[in-house]
């Protein structure tokens, strides 16, 4: 299992580094979306719940691009069959894809968050607020990665692939949106970060756990045939 995950992950990251597709597109798209928000909201800077909303929507829409692409190379170049022929647990593919998508999301956030702070965010982020933001985003990334892998595996087998990804993923990610927005709102207030949003971290952790188990149980049915 570990050997297979390692091989798959190495292949995944090498493909992305060799012919970068997902990460640059996602990063560029997220910065463009920030500019879009500036004009659409007609604000030079945002704070509090508005800032949380802007960050949340931008991140999620960028994630949709990555989800749409996640299984395309495997489908078009037959890599999926190549994997299925190997005597390894199919869960390895789920783990490798989710880890890869999570890594892509972290990479995008490394561009998105600084861009957001410089371009739109009113109050300055201190170190404590920054650490909390990172913690929340990591839990969010885990949930998006798992749900994204599940949705990507479903959508890649359909004719309407790119249409179905947001239609399936966005409602499924609504609890993540709620938790992300609620948890980051206090971080973006001028008054500074309050106490750690334990309730929302708990919700995110529960979400990650539930969908992690679901994906583990269901993924095998998505890769056969």
């Amino acid at each position: 299992m570990r050997r297979a995950v390692g091989a798959l992950l190495r292949k995944e990251l090498r493909l992305e580094l060799r012919a970068p597709q997902s990460v640059p597109a996602m990063a560029l798209f997220s910065v463009t979306t920030l500019v879009l928000f500036h004009f659409a909201l007609q604000r030079g800077e945002v704070d509090g719940d508005l800032a949380a909303g802007v960050l949340c929507v931008t991140l999620l829409f960028a994630a949709m691009l990555g989800v749409s692409r996640l299984f395309v190379a495997d489908r078009e170049e037959g890599g999926l069959d190549g994997f299925l022929l190997a005597p390894v647990d199919r869960t390895a593919l789920l783990v490798a894809k989710a880890v890869a998508l999570g890594a892509f999301l972290v990479a995008v956030e490394c561009v998105l968050v600084p861009a957001f702070v410089f371009l739109l965010l009113g109050p300055a982020l201190d170190a404590a607020a920054f650490a909390r933001l990172a913690l929340v985003l990591l839990l969010v990334d885990a949930g998006v990665a798992v749900v994204g892998t599940l949705v990507g595996a479903i959508a890649v087998q359909t004719r309407a692939r790119d249409l179905l990804v947001p239609l399936l993923a966005l409602p499924l990610l609504m609890p993540v949106v709620i938790a992300l927005a609620k948890a980051t709102t206090p971080l973006f207030l001028a008054a500074g970060a309050g106490s750690l949003p334990v309730r929302w971290l708990g919700i995110l952790a529960l979400y990650d756990l539930v969908f992690g188990l679901l994906a583990y149980g269901l993924f095998d049915f998505l890769v056969e045939d």
Binding site: K11, R14, L15, A19, A73, E77, G78, G79, D81
Partner: peptide, 10 residues
């Protein structure tokens, strides 16, 4: 098979 089952960018 008909598909070579290899990644073109590798």
């Amino acid at each position: 098979g008909h598909e070579p089952l290899v990644y073109r960018d590798l």
